[in-house]
Design a protein around this nucleic acid. Structure first.
Lengths: 107, 107
DNA sequence: TCATTATATAACTGTTTAGTTATATTACCA
DNA sequence: TGGTAATATAACTAAACAGTTATATAATGA
C-alpha cells in the first residue's frame, strides 16, 4: 500500500490531526476500527491507514476479538516527546523567579 | 514565496527535524541566520524559510543588529504540546503514588 | 459451502512541503 | 555613490502523504 517505505517518526505521527484525535479517543477506552470510523468521519481504509502508523510506532496494539480488531492505546512512546520538552519546560513553568512571574502574569 | 497560504500548526512546525534542531540551537543562545546556516548544513534560504515558520507560530523573535538578524527563542508556545501530553503522562510515570504525582506537578 | 461482517491492502490523486538556485532587499562602509 | 555582506523572497521540483474507491483477506454463522 503506497509502498510505505519511509521510516515513521513519532513527531510526524502525532503531527497529524486525525491521529491525535484517535489516540485521544483510545485513551478513553479501547475501540474497534468500526467505532473509530464512526467517531472520526474518515473512511474505513483511512482509519486503518492511520492505525497502521500508530501501530508501527508502538502507540497502539491490537486485541483480536474474532473479526473485530480492538485497538488499545499504549502511550509510553509519547515519553519521547515529553523528554524532548524537558529543557524547554522551565520557560513557561510558573516556578520562575518572582520578576519573571510578575511579567508573565501581566501578559 | 510558495504562496504560503496555509495556516501553520504547532505540531506540524515541531514535526520537522531541522526546525527542532534550530530551536534546540537557539535554546543555547540567540543566533544570526548565518550561524544557523553553518550549524544546520542547510542553504541560507532553507534556514530563512524555517525561521519564518518558527516566527509565524511565535517560537522565535528577531532582534536586528544592523544587517544581522539575531533570532531568539521564545519557548512558551511549546506549552501547548506539554498541555496536550498531560493526560498521557501518567502512563509512563512510574510514580503512581499520588503524593509523588503532586510533587511532580509542582516542579 | 455461501453470504455477511470486519478489517486490511492496493492503487490512484491532489495537496503540501522541504529543499534548491536565482534574485531582490536592506544595511553598512570605503 | 558603489560595492559588499546579510537576509528574505520568488520560482521551481521532487518527494511525501492524507484521503479516496476498489478489492482482497479473514472470521463467523446459517
Amino acid at each position: 500500500m503506497d509502498k510505505e517505505k519511509y521510516t515513521t517518526n513519532l513527531f510526524d505521527v502525532i503531527a497529524e490531526k486525525n491521529r491525535r484525535k484517535m489516540i485521544d479517543l483510545l485513551r478513553v477506552r479501547p475501540m474497534s476500527v468500526g467505532e473509530l470510523v464512526e467517531l472520526t468521519q474518515l473512511s474505513q481504509p483511512g482509519v486503518s491507514k492511520h492505525l497502521r502508523k500508530l501501530k508501527e510506532i508502538g502507540l497502539v496494539f491490537i486485541d483480536k476479538d474474532s473479526q473485530k480488531h480492538i485497538y488499545h492505546l499504549n502511550a509510553k512512546p509519547l515519553a519521547e516527546i515529553d523528554n524532548w520538552l524537558k529543557p524547554y519546560r522551565k520557560y513557561w513553568s510558573n516556578k520562575l523567579d518572582s520578576l519573571e512571574q510578575l511579567l508573565d502574569e501581566e501578559e
